[in-house]
Simulated assay, not measured.
Amino acid sequence: MMENSRKARERAEAALSGPPERPAKGSAIGIIAAESLATQEKTARLKKLRMERDATEGPKVAKVKAKPKASKPRVKKSAG
C-alpha cells in the first residue's frame, strides 16, 4: 500500500509540475543581443582611447610614396 501511494504521489507531482525544463524560447536572440551590446561597448571604449591618444600626440600622417612617372610608349620612326 505504501508503494501505491508513493507511485500515485510521483504521478501527481509529474502532472502538476508542468512541462519538462527546456531552454527559453528566443534564447539565441538574447545571446546575439548580448554579443552585439558587448561589441558596441568595446568599440566605444577603443574609440575613446584612440581619441585621447590623438589629442595628446596628434594624428599620425601616413607617408605616401610618389609613383614613378609612366614612360611614354616609343614610336618607331620609319626609315623612308
Rank of each mutant, 00 (worst) to 15 (best):
P20W: 11
T43D: 03
S5Q: 14
M51R: 02
S5K: 00
E13I: 10
I32D: 00
A79T: 10
K60F: 01
A33I: 02
P20M: 12
S5G: 09
K76D: 10
E52I: 04
L37Q: 08
E35P: 09
K65D: 05
V64R: 06
A28Y: 00
E3I: 13
A14W: 13
S71A: 15
S5C: 05
A8P: 15
R50S: 01
T43C: 03
A12M: 03
K42P: 02
M51I: 01
K67P: 12
K42L: 11
K67C: 00
I29F: 08
P59A: 02
M1F: 08
M1K: 06
E52A: 04
I31M: 03
M51D: 15
I32R: 12
M1A: 14
M2N: 14
S5V: 04
A79W: 10
P68V: 10
G18Q: 03
T56L: 15
V75Y: 03
A62S: 11
R11P: 01
K7H: 07
N4V: 11
K47W: 02
M51Y: 01
S36K: 09
T43V: 13
M51L: 03
E13W: 12
K65Y: 07
K72P: 13
S71E: 15
A70F: 09
L49M: 13
L46C: 07
V64F: 06
A8H: 05
P73A: 11
I31P: 11
R45N: 10
K65R: 15
P68T: 05
R53P: 05
E35Y: 07
I29H: 13
P20H: 00
T43Q: 14
A33N: 13
M2A: 15
D54A: 04
K72N: 08
G18M: 03
A24W: 05
A33S: 06
A62E: 15
E57S: 01
K48D: 14
E57D: 01
R11M: 01
K7R: 15
S17K: 07
A14P: 08
L46D: 03
P68C: 11
S17D: 11
K67R: 13
E13C: 10
T39N: 00
A44R: 07
K25E: 13
G30W: 06
T43H: 10
K42W: 01
G18S: 01
K72S: 09
P23D: 10
R53S: 00
K72E: 12
E10I: 14
